[in-house]
Design a binder for these strands. Structure first.
Lengths: 349, 349
DNA sequence: ACCGCTCACGTGAGCGGTAACATAATAGAA
DNA sequence: TTCTATTATGTTACCGCTCACGTGAGCGGT
């Protein structure tokens, strides 16, 4: 595979490589006749300029990294779409990097991106602690963090107001008469997890309840994690009436745990998910969940990254508001419990 | 952001750049003392070799492209994972390219990958006709096609035996006593779609039935497409008893159409999906579907691509066998139709 | 002491572009 | 006409690394 180079084109057209370069890059100072001639030769030879050589000369790669914990987690593909649509329009290509929830691998991919000299990176839901993450951000040309705040000089940040989402969920359950509410809080390394936990405690406190640590259990952010955590939470004590889950996958796992324990959703226990991934509206019972626009997260992060690449560091933060979507798994009104028709409200704590 | 170069390291260590290069690349002919010295300087200066410069010198980028119609389609993320896990292990980075089902965009991303001088590309479910696709393959260093055959000298190929999957589905429905079977055949540009159509017709013919063109309708490969196609297929005539769908998303759409038309699944109509994406087992009724290991597709394609990058063109084809997974939407036995409890077994084949 | 060999390292020339400056040709102004 | 802008093009030096050689020191054998 012998590639055509700019020198080949120049020779064939009887001009200097610089002239060819000017044609490719649409520089103004070229006579129409030369331009046409060069274009014709480029076409005929099937010449395409080498991005590699170009990058070396210009110190720009037109490539950015997209770091996600797991692209197979339905939360991230849409973010990727939003980011790619925005970036590709501007000529950027995207390196996809899965960290598979492993901090070591996250470090490794960040180094790899550094080696590739990407113009920037979007890092989603980093699992690295601040003191490990921040020094690495400094080594990148431009960074935007998703679901994680950062000092403006190090990185932009696109966050969902996680606490507010959880507050809405708690209020919804309380409003529906659920008194004892459990919380499957997700991976403890996750910033979102901590924020949602904060919102959970805050909402309970504001409503005059005391958060009970035993009712808040961390879990892997997937189907299995939700299943196991829900099982342990629901089987121990019989009084949990509502369950707020770290994400929709966790909620699906919780649904399965309920089925296995013979608990009816939503009659015995109401379940609220988070993220509103595609399946939330498709499963049965359909999932009440906290909707966030994932595509918008990706697009916003990409726009912010482009700004940073071009040296504009403002705005350095975007916060998207989540919104509760009420479906079957946690309706507005609670129906009778222990039920075969007869209501027996046991009245809370 | 002034990056440390190999020259900086060389100067600081008092050796030539070539010596530094030898250390980085673990060449043998270096004295232990020099190696240690250089390593120390590299560490101290935080030097990381530029992949760009390296690529220009070696004519290798350690980057490959992964082209998919839509990463938000749950079929593809797992393929991406399989490919990435395999490729990253060997030091390759992956450019993710969504074509959003648009042939023009597909051409554009292939050109972009060419410009980036990727070492190879995995192209999933290409929507380009052979006469447009093949010439473009020739311009890549190495290619593996997923869900599409190709001349061995142009590209490797990883396919699912689509026809066989559909045959299994048809036989299953026939065996359950379903006589009139519809087929939502997916995007007509898709090779898989044509193969599955072939399998559908073949299985019917083998069973002594004649395929009815009106019962085979193409559709977009998503939820919406399935909904619309199923609606038109089921509303016109009342006698469709079984529906085979291009993929699980289409099946979910069909499920919704049935619900809307007041048809019970599986009592009135049995539905079979394809791919066995995560949600297939989670929705209700759970989906009988044709399982294929998507991670394995990705991993296999990646291994084949690595082979091709290194010049080995054998084997140039892998065919993965799909397998029917029977769940609620199309059980082994058909229960009474138009039924409220009374069994009226119509007795199978 | 001489030769030849290996080992450890240095030297110079690219890889395929672009930036910055130099230069020839042409046009317009005095 | 002569001088100066202006326009269209060529020249040269990198960008940061690797490849293919070149070379000097040290060693053993005769």
């Amino acid at each position: 595979m012998n590639r055509v180079t700019i020198a080949d084109v120049a020779r064939e057209a009887g001009v200097s490589t610089q002239t060819v370069s000017r044609v490719i890059n649409n520089k103004a100072e070229i006579s129409p006749s030369t331009r046409e001639l060069v274009m014709e030769v480029i076409e005929r030879l099937g010449y395409r300029p080498s991005g590699v050589a170009r990058s070396l000369a210009t110190n720009k790669t037109l490539a950015v990294g997209l770091v996600v914990p797991d692209i197979a987690n339905p939360f991230f593909p849409e973010i990727a779409r939003g980011a790619e649509d925005t970036l590709r329009e501007r000529g950027y290509e995207i390196f996809l990097c899965n960290t598979i929830e492993d901090p070591e691998r996250e470090k490794a991919v960040l180094s790899a991106l550094e080696d590739k000299r990407v113009d920037g990176a979007i890092i989603c839901s980093s699992r690295l602690p601040d003191d490990q993450l921040f020094p690495r951000l400094r080594r990148q040309q431009a960074v935007v963090l998703v679901n994680r705040p950062a000092p403006p000089e190090l990185a932009g940040s696109v966050c969902v107001d996680d606490a507010s989402g959880t507050v809405q969920a708690v209020q919804h359950l309380l409003g529906a008469g659920r008194e004892v509410i459990g919380f499957l809080s997700g991976p403890s390394r996750s910033h979102s997890a901590r924020e949602r936990t904060r919102g959970f405690e805050q909402a309970l406190t504001a409503a005059g309840r005391r958060p009970v640590p035993e009712l808040m259990v961390p879990c892997a952010p997937d189907h299995e994690g939700g299943y196991e955590a829900a099982l342990s939470l629901l089987s121990g004590r019989g009084n949990v009436e509502g369950l707020i889950c770290y994400n929709d996958l966790v909620a699906v796992g919780a649904l399965r745990a309920c089925a296995e324990l013979g608990l009816s959703v939503p009659d015995d226990v109401s379940i609220v998910g988070c993220d509103d991934i595609m399946i939330a509206g498709l499963i049965s019972p359909s999932l009440t969940t906290i909707h966030v626009s994932k595509y918008e997260i990706g697009a916003t992060a990409a726009r912010m990254l482009l700004d940073r690449i071009e040296g504009r560091h403002e705005p350095s933060e975007a916060i998207l508001k989540p919104e509760l979507v009420v479906r079957e798994s946690a309706p507005h009104m609670t129906r009778p419990r222990n039920a075969h028709g007869q209501a027996t409200n046991d009245g809370g704590r």
